[in-house]
Amino acid sequence: MSSHRQIKEGSFHILGGDFANAGEASTSIKRELLEMGVEEDTIRRVSIATFEAEMNIIIYATAGIIRYTITPEEVIIIAEDMGPGIEDIELAMQEGYSTAPDWVREMGWGAGMGLPNMKKNSDVFKIDSVVGEGTRVDMIIKRRRNETEADQ
């Protein structure tokens, strides 16, 4: 019972262009979720959504911060950056649309699936952006525990 009542939160600073450490924040959050015994499906969705958010900061922004809150009902991820912002959010949400330069594509990123991927894995997805200032993405992943766990 007590483990399900736990609320955990934390944050990670992400540096733009830091490909060497790309994925460290998401991996740490994944580890934390595993240690808390969170159900697999939730871990997978949180990990993927966070990883994409982290990569977007590394690829496009100067710097950013990823904050997370884990509750018995949901996981909240907020990714906020100081970056170029997004001019046309609707366009940016389209699968395959990307403004990434070629060198980023050669590293395996920038194929225009980042935002769609975040949306696909979240139950609530919100994006706010100001051109020249930065972007903030709010994601909520609801936990779908199985019957036995929910009854405990």
Binding site: F19, A20, A22, G23, S26, T27, K30, R44, S47, I48, F51, M107, G108, W109
Partner: peptide
């Protein structure tokens, strides 16, 4: 690259 391993781990 490392990215492939990192992505595999996440997924």
């Amino acid at each position: 690259r490392q990215q492939a391993i990192r992505t595999a781990h996440i997924a």
